[in-house]
């Protein structure tokens, strides 16, 4: 199956300032791709290149099988800009109707259903909408025509937690229907629970593309066992992946890298009364990506 988004050597300079350097990336049909990086790393540049809002300095990007320069393909894309501006006296409902017509129509009732899910008021003039409510309108316009590809730039900004949950549910439904989502964020926590893969950009370069499940498996997590009686330290020493081991009477605390299987089997020889396993902290992995790649990159530059 061909990729939904294919970027090859995609490069963008704004004058002499680098926006994006040599991005080569495939986004597969039916996946949710999290696009991560600190502010100013090149996420929005990448996204705007995909939508032909800006033009590449070098390289090319194909979207849904055609060159991104083809205007017609955009009826099959739903796009939420990172800095969504909705203004004017026009009511949100009328603006959505206009966008829908331009994209070739939306099933009747679809906009209302989305508005109800997100608790958005469509009868207010757009300039009177709060930031969060504008974001809801932005999401409705991106989802309403059931596009094959959703490109969402920082979609959760300004949304309250309940609406965020609803939004994540909508994203999962899109994937379940076999459609594709690209969403960017500067924090991993926003995308890690829905993304299949994540790409990390830093200073205009794609530094890694990772499978989230693999990442989670590889992540360091803190585990704590409490037993009914004191346990010998030797029983837990030398287990693969186990580090920072601390045995204090009847409790064992350690961090574990990768699969917890050997540790669990070691613990099973005693009577476990209580066990705590913290969520793997993927954020920490990303911070190492950011900083390590940064160091490598700086070395290359100075060499």
């Amino acid at each position: 199956m061909t990729a939904v988004v294919q970027a090859e050597g995609l490069t963008k300079y704004y004058g002499r300032r680098r926006g994006l350097e040599d991005l080569t990336l495939d986004i597969r049909a039916g996946e949710i791709f999290g696009y991560l990086g600190p502010n100013g790393a090149g996420k929005t540049t990448t996204i705007r290149l995909m939508l032909d809002v800006i033009r590449p300095t070098r390289g090319q990007v194909r979207v849904l099988g055609v060159d991104a320069r083809q205007a017609a393909v955009r009826s099959r894309i739903g796009y939420l800009p990172g800095e969504l501006v909705l203004d004017g006296r026009e009511r949100a409902r009328d603006h959505l109707a206009f966008l829908a017509r331009q994209r070739g129509g939306v099933p009747p009732g679809r906009v209302e259903a989305l508005a109800e899910r997100l608790d958005a008021d469509l009868s207010v003039p757009m300039r009177k909408l709060s930031k969060g409510n504008k974001q809801k309108i932005g999401l409705i316009q991106a989802f309403m025509h059931e596009p094959e590809l959703l490109i969402l730039d920082e979609p959760t900004g300004g949304l309250d937690p309940l609406v965020q949950q609803e939004f994540l549910a909508m994203v999962r439904e899109v994937r379940a229907a076999g459609r594709t989502v690209l969403m960017s964020s500067h924090v991993l926590a926003e995308v890690e629970h829905v993304s299949d893969r994540v790409g990390i950009v830093r200073a205009g370069r794609l530094v890694a593309v990772e499978n989230v499940a693999t990442l989670r498996e590889r992540a360091v997590r803190t585990v704590e066992f409490h037993f009914d009686a004191p346990v010998p330290r030797e029983a837990f020493e030398g287990l693969p992946g186990v580090r920072d081991l601390r045995v204090e009477g009847a409790s064992v605390r350690c961090t574990i890298d990768g699969r917890p299987d050997p540790l669990v089997k070691a613990a099973a020889r005693f009577t476990v009364v209580h066990m705590v396993s913290a969520e793997p902290d993927l954020e920490e992995i990303f911070l190492t990506y950011y900083s390590e790649e940064g160091r490598d990159h700086d070395l290359q530059v100075s060499a």
Partner: peptide
């Protein structure tokens, strides 16, 4: 300048049109 054009240029309509 205000930013409202972003959604308009990403409609399936050519810039020329």
């Amino acid at each position: 300048e205000s930013g409202t054009l972003e959604l308009i240029v990403t409609l399936p309509i050519t810039r020329r049109m």
